[in-house]
Structure formats: structure tokens, C-alpha cells
Simulated scan of single mutants.
Amino acid sequence: MTPPQKTLEQTSPAACEILELISYNREHHDKYTGTSVEDILSKIQGDRINWINIDGLNNQDIIEKVQTFFCLHSLLIEDVLSDQRPKAEEFDDYLFFTLKMLYRIDGTGIDYEQISFVLGKNYLISFQEKEGDLFDGFRERIRLDQGRVRKKQADYLLYRLIDIIVENYYNVLDRIGDLIEEIEDTVYQNPSMRTFNRIQRLKKELIYLRKALFPLRDALSKIVKGESEFVHEENLRFYSDVYEHVIHLTDSLDTYKDLVSSLMDIHINAMNTKMNEVMKVLTVISTIFIPLTFIVGVYGMNFKFMPELDWKYGYFGVWGIMFLVVAGMISFFRYKKWF
């Protein structure tokens, strides 16, 4: 369905909003960027595929004008502006699809944003929370007419964008795998509360990834089963491929979750072992000083008749006895392999 044309008032959006339109077919390709939503929407052509991208969702005026132009449901706009779990929802004239776009993992924190798509007959709208995305290379491929996208409909464009997002999930998971290995080495070498906190943060990120991936699997499942009239049958196999990637990611995620849980147990055991070593050393020291304290206590008594007090070599003799006691106890402990 060609998007309905509406008369719009001229209003300039906030500087933080970025509007972009890529309009193409097999023969032509045009790209428009600007600060006026009216200028962008006026360049939409019914005989082309039109990709409208909105970076930044703070300007309510832009959202309302896009909503009016494409007759978008108010509940859909509410989902776009709020934090939503990935899902696919079909309306009368378009398909709504939302998911999380991950960029990288810095330390143990994942940089991400929500991205929402509205797929119509010859248009695709993408709503992004902030500037920048993963699609610059793909935009260039469209311009150069590389691949199939210029020969396909808007549903194929949606598939390619989702596929790019899902592929980057692998990079994030690979980084998590590297972090697990780094933390594991640290745990064996020098377990500490800082390492424990890193494990805890990583565990929370895995929980977030689980919340992002499992609903995405269900959303793609709806499309793969052919339940949407906005996805052509010939393109279902592409969505099925993305669906299989998500299944693989969820399996990998479960593996990493088990590894982090094991890492937590290893850290606790390592901390206990370290504490036991400290306690063992302190116990050995305390045990050694028990007889020495006894000897010193005996000769510290103020009795008048103590023969050793009048002995010329009594002081040195006591030191010699204490030295022999210490040496004997250390030899005994080493013989027992207590340290």
C-alpha cells in the first residue's frame, strides 16, 4: 500500500533529530537528509522502495507528523517511545517489528539501543533512539547496487537490517567469551572482590541478552511461519536463516551462562582456598608461639628461689631452648606437609 499523502505544517525539528530517506528501485537511487520532516516525506515516491530513518526520538512533533503521514496506530508509537521487549505485530496496513541493537561491550557493560521498524508495501520506517547505527556499509551497498536489495521489495530490506543487527550479536558474545577467559585467569591468579564484582556485572549482562534474544526468536518465528502478509513467500527463507542464527545465539548464551555460573563457583572456592591458606599460616605461627609464651611466662614469674636466675648462662640457655623448640616444630610441620 502506498503511504497516504497528508498536508503537513512546516516545522523544524530539534537539532538532535536526524532524518534520512533512501529511495531506490532497480534503475534509480536517491538519498535525502535534512532537518525538515515535511521535505523528507514529500520526496517519497510510490514506484520506489522508501527507507525513512529517524535518529533520536525526543522531538514529539516529528513523531506526530510521521504518525499522521503513515496513519500509524497510537499504540505502535507508544511501543516505539517506550522500552519494549522484541516483538512482531501486524496491523492492517503495516508490520511492526522492534528489537535491541547491540554495538559493543565495554568492560562488562553492553552499549545498546532499541530500534523499531514499520514495514509497509513500499516503505520501511526505522526509529532509533540515538545517532549512529550499524548500517553505514549496507547503505553504501544500496548506493552501489551490490547484492539483491535493489531488486527486492521492502520486506527484503527489513530482513537485511535485522540480519546485520543479529550478526553483531555474535561480536558481542565473542567479546563476552574473551572476558570470561580473562576473568578466569584472574580468578586463578589472584581472586578478589573486584573480580567477583566483574563476574556479577557480566552475569547481569547475560540476563539482559537473554531477555533480548528469546523474545526475538519468538518474533521471527511468527514471520517464518508465514503469518505475515507483508513478507513475500520467496523471502521467508531469508528470515528463516536469521531465525536459525538467533537459535544458535541462544544456545551460545546458555553455554556462557553456565560458564559464568561455574566461574562464580570457582571464584568462591578460590577465595575460600586463599582464606584457608592465610588461616593455616596464622595457625602455624600461633602454634609456634604457644610453647615460647609458656617458657617466657615461667621465667617471668617473680619467685625468689628460681635456680636458673642465678645461673651465669641462664639467659642464653633460655634463648637456645626457644630456638630448638621453634626449629623442632617447623621440622615437624614440614614433615607432616602442613605447609
Rank of each mutant, 00 (worst) to 15 (best):
P4L: 14
Q5C: 07
E17Q: 15
E17L: 13
I18K: 11
I18V: 13
L19A: 02
E20Q: 14
L21G: 01
L21V: 10
I22P: 03
I22N: 01
S23M: 08
S23D: 05
S23F: 07
N25R: 07
N25F: 10
H28P: 04
T33E: 14
T35V: 09
S36C: 05
E38Q: 12
E38L: 13
I40M: 06
S42V: 07
R48W: 08
N58G: 05
Q60W: 00
I62G: 01
Q67F: 05
T68P: 11
C71V: 15
L75I: 12
L75Q: 15
I77C: 06
D79Y: 05
R85N: 10
K87F: 05
E89D: 10
D93V: 08
L95T: 00
L95F: 00
F97P: 03
K100Q: 14
K100E: 08
I110M: 02
E113N: 04
S116V: 02
L119E: 07
N122P: 09
I125P: 01
S126M: 01
Q128D: 01
E129R: 03
K130F: 02
K130T: 03
G132R: 03
G132E: 00
L134Y: 04
F135L: 09
D136V: 10
F138C: 05
F138L: 11
R139P: 07
R139D: 09
E140G: 04
E140R: 07
E140V: 08
L144E: 10
D145A: 07
K151E: 14
K152I: 10
L158S: 11
Y159W: 08
I165M: 08
E167D: 13
E167P: 12
Y170L: 12
V172W: 07
L173K: 14
I176K: 04
E181F: 06
E181S: 10
E182N: 12
E182K: 13
T186S: 11
T186E: 12
V187N: 01
Y188K: 00
P191D: 00
P191K: 00
M193L: 15
R194E: 13
F196V: 04
R198E: 14
Q200V: 10
L202D: 03
L209Q: 05
A219H: 05
S221Y: 07
K222S: 10
K225S: 13
F230W: 03
H232Y: 15
E234G: 06
N235G: 05
R237W: 05
V242Y: 02
E244L: 10
E244F: 08
E244D: 14
V246M: 10
I247V: 15
H248N: 13
L249V: 07
Y256V: 02
L259E: 04
V260Y: 06
V260E: 03
S262I: 02
L263R: 01
M264H: 08
D265Q: 06
D265P: 05
D265H: 05
H267N: 03
E277P: 02
K280R: 15
L282W: 07
V284F: 06
F289D: 07
P291V: 06
I295G: 10
G297H: 09
V298C: 12
Y299N: 11
N302Y: 11
F305P: 00
E308H: 15
L309C: 09
F316Y: 15
G320I: 13
M322F: 08
L324T: 14
A327R: 07
R334K: 14
R334Y: 11
K337L: 05
W338N: 06
